[in-house]
Simulated assay, not measured.
Amino acid sequence: MKKKFKHIKESQLTITELMLPSHSNFSGKIHGGHILNLMDQIAFACASKHSENYCVTASVNKVDFLNPIEVGELVTLKASINYTGRTSMVVGLRVESENIRTGEKKHCNSSYFTMVAKDEAGKSAPIPGIILTTKDEIRRFARSITRQNEGRHRTSRFSSKIFKTDAYIHLLEESNSKIELK
């Protein structure tokens, strides 16, 4: 079977939603959980559109809430495939808010969702590759590979079986912690 490739723009998605009082937290700002839910939905839609299969979220890399979102603002989420493996893909997400009255836009969040395509039997399904047409697309693809490699190293280095306390104890010297080893 010949390998299939798709242009990134074929699966890119943008959604915009008005933020309502029911989306707010106790301080009157939009609840981060609501934004994460929207991010997961658009990541699912983008990955499913690319893979032509149902997709599941395998991991989320780095969610930093950069600016608060107010009730009454429009929130726009943009999703794009940054990387494709054999059955998984990284969906890059950007979240922006817009004040309807002033037109002021704020970058609120950027994140990376790793999604895995599933077939009808629930098994991981092969996906099309992506066609890279710009230096930014190549940069995003390379960054995803680097992030995966760093994640594997970070996970193994802190495994309870091989973690060396003496190698990291100095990091706790100025921390807000108290050590009472038994």
Rank of each mutant, 00 (worst) to 15 (best):
S156A: 14
L20R: 14
I179T: 09
T165C: 04
H23S: 04
E180D: 13
K178P: 00
A79S: 15
I131N: 07
I162G: 00
S27I: 15
K105C: 08
K106T: 10
I15F: 06
C55W: 00
F5K: 11
K135V: 06
E73I: 01
N61S: 11
P126Y: 10
H153Q: 13
R157K: 14
S51V: 05
N25K: 08
M115L: 07
V63Y: 02
F113P: 03
E180R: 10
K135R: 10
H31E: 10
T133N: 14
K62F: 05
R94C: 04
T146I: 13
E120I: 12
L171V: 05
K6L: 13
E98C: 14
K2C: 03
R86E: 12
G129R: 07
T134Q: 07
F65T: 05
G92E: 00
E180H: 12
G103Q: 12
I145E: 15
I30R: 00
L172W: 06
P21D: 08
T14S: 15
N149W: 08
S111D: 02
K105S: 09
E98H: 09
S11P: 03
T57E: 04
S159M: 08
L132S: 02
G28I: 08
R157S: 10
S110V: 03
V95L: 02
Q12G: 04
L20K: 10
Q148F: 12
R86H: 15
I162W: 02
F113R: 01
E52F: 04
L77S: 03
G103I: 13
P126E: 11
S11T: 06
L93D: 00
K182Y: 09
V91M: 02
R94A: 06
Q148H: 14
P21K: 07
S11D: 04
V91K: 02
K105Y: 07
F158D: 02
T16C: 11
T102F: 11
P126S: 11
T84C: 15
M89D: 00
N82H: 12
N53D: 03
S111I: 06
N99S: 13
E150T: 10
I69W: 01
I145F: 04
K62I: 09
D136N: 13
